[in-house]
Design a protein around this nucleic acid. Structure first.
Lengths: 252, 252
DNA sequence: AGATTGTATATTGGATCCGATGTTTCTATG
DNA sequence: CATAGAAACATCGGATCCAATATACAATCT
C-alpha cells in the first residue's frame, strides 16, 4: 500500500516526524489523521492534511501558508504543495495572491449566514429523502454516534462526532452528489462552529436536538425529521452569528 | 493587462494560434472564449478553456486528455496543465489515473437524475429569494435574454442563453454561495442538455416555461416563480433522461 | 527630517529534467 | 502459427533550476 507513494512522502508515517523543521504554530498538524492508503499522490496527502488543519481550526484565519515551509513539513518539493493549494483555493478554503502567497480564507458574517441558510435547505431535504430508506443497522449507528456526544469529554472531538451523527443518517438517502455539497459547505464553517461549541455551552442544545431528530427518524416521520434538522441548523447558525458578533465587530 | 501573464501564454491571443501543434479533434477549442484579464496564472487559462470545452461538449465523454498535448496547445509546460487538471478533477469534470492519464468524466443516468433533482431544489429556492429583490433593470435584462431565445438560430448558443436568462434572475437573490453551487451543478450536466436540446425540439417548451417564470417574476409572485422553476428543471431532467435512455442503454 | 530611489531578500509561477510505471510491439520458442 | 517474455515507448508525478515580482531596508536628495 505505502509503496504506491513516493517513499519520501510516506516516510513520516513510520519514521520520526521532523518536527524541528516545522515553523512555529504548526506542530498541531498531524499527518496520521490522513488516510495514506486512499491518496494517489503526494498532493492528495498535502491537500487532505491542510484541509483537515483548516476545518479543525489548527490553522487560524489569515494565517500565511508558505509553499516552501509546507514542502519542508511534508518532506517533498513545492510542486505537490502548489497543487494542493490550488485545490484548496478552488474550494474556497484559502485565497492566494501571486508573489505574495496564500492565506487561510475568512468568512464574513453575511457569508456564514448564507452558508447556514443553504445547509438548512439541503440537509433538511437529504434527511427527508433518507428517512424512508433507513434500516435498523443505520439507525443503530446513528444512535451510537448520538450517545457518543454524552460520553465524549474532549471538546476537540465534538465536530467529528457531530459530522458522524448527521452523515450516518444522510448516507441512507443514497444521494452522493448532495452529500458532496453538504461536506463542502460544512468544511467552510466547521472551524467557527467548533470554536463556538467549545467556548459557549451550545452542546446541551445540540444534544437535545439530535435526540429529537433521531426520534423522528425512528418514528419514520420524514417531514418532522426534515423540519427539526432545518431548525437545528438555523438555530446553530443564529447562535454562531451572535457569538461572532460579540467576538468581532459586525463588519469583518 | 496582458502583461500580468507570462508572455508565452498570452501570446496566442494576439499572434497566430499554433493550430499545427493541436492534435486532431481539438481545433474546436478557442482560447478567445477565456477572459485572459481575469486569469492570475497560466493554470487559470488552461482550466477555464478546458472547463468550457467540456461543458460545451467539444470534448466528448471519455476523451483522453494528455498533459503534453494540452501543454503544446497552450504553448506552456505541463506544470500549469497538471494544476488545471487537478482542479477539474476536484470539480468532477474529469477523472485521472496515475500513469494512464485523464479522461472526461461521464455521468450515469442515476447521477444525472440526482443532479437535476438537486438543481430543482436549489434554483427554486434561489428564485424565491430573488423575486422580492428584483428591480426594473434586472427584469429588463431577463426579458432581453428570454427574447434572445427566439431570435437565436444557432443551437450552439442555446446553452449560453439559457444560463444568461436564469442567472440574470438569480443574481438578484444576492446569494453568491448558492450561485457558485448552481454553476457547478450546471457545469456537470450542461453538455448533455445541449445535445438533447439540439437533437430534439425541446426548445419550444423551454421558451414557454421561461416566459411563465418571467411573468411570475414580473408579477412579484415568488412562490409561483419557484414552483415553475422547479417544474421547469424537473421536466427538462425527465426529457433528458428519456432521451439518453433511447440513445444509450439504461446501464451506462 | 522626510521623501524617494535603488538594492537585497523573499516568494511565487513556470520550464526542464528524471525516475517510476503502464502499454505496445517485437522476437524467440514450443 | 500461437504465445510468452523482453524491450522499446508513452505517460505521469516529482525534483530542481530559473525568471518575475513584491516587500523591506538602506542610501541619497531636497
Amino acid at each position: 500500500m505505502l509503496g504506491m507513494l513516493p517513499r519520501a512522502v510516506a516516510a513520516p508515517i513510520t519514521e520520526a516526524w521532523p518536527f524541528a523543521a516545522i515553523p512555529q504554530g504548526w506542530t498541531a498538524m498531524k499527518l496520521e489523521t490522513v488516510d495514506i492508503r486512499q491518496a494517489a499522490s503526494a498532493a492528495d496527502i498535502v491537500y487532505e492534511a491542510l484541509r483537515k488543519a483548516i476545518i479543525e481550526g489548527d490553522l487560524a484565519e489569515g494565517e500565511n501558508l508558505r509553499q516552501d515551509q509546507i514542502a519542508l513539513m511534508f518532506n517533498t518539493s513545492r510542486i505537490p504543495v502548489r497543487e494542493a493549494l490550488s485545490r484548496l483555493e478552488q474550494n474556497g478554503l484559502i485565497t492566494t495572491q501571486r508573489y505574495k502567497g496564500a492565506v487561510v480564507a475568512g468568512l464574513s458574517i453575511e457569508e456564514i449566514e448564507e452558508i447556514f441558510e443553504f445547509r438548512a435547505l439541503i440537509e433538511a431535504e437529504v434527511i427527508r429523502l433518507a428517512v424512508p430508506k433507513l434500516t435498523g443497522k443505520t439507525l443503530d449507528a446513528a444512535r451510537r454516534h448520538c450517545q457518543a456526544f454524552d460520553s465524549e469529554a474532549n471538546s476537540a472531538m465534538w465536530g467529528e462526532i457531530n459530522r458522524n451523527f448527521h452523515y450516518s443518517l444522510y448516507e441512507a438517502a443514497r444521494r452522493p452528489y448532495y452529500l458532496q455539497i453538504v461536506r463542502a459547505s460544512l468544511d467552510r464553517i466547521d472551524r467557527y462552529l467548533r470554536a463556538q461549541l467549545t467556548l459557549t455551552n451550545g452542546m446541551s442544545r445540540a444534544r437535545r436536538e439530535h435526540k429529537g431528530i433521531l426520534d423522528a427518524c425512528i418514528a419514520g416521520d420524514a417531514d418532522k425529521a426534515a423540519e427539526l434538522t432545518r431548525d437545528h441548523i438555523l438555530g446553530a447558525g443564529r447562535a454562531l452569528v451572535t457569538f461572532l458578533e460579540e467576538t468581532r465587530g459586525r463588519n469583518d
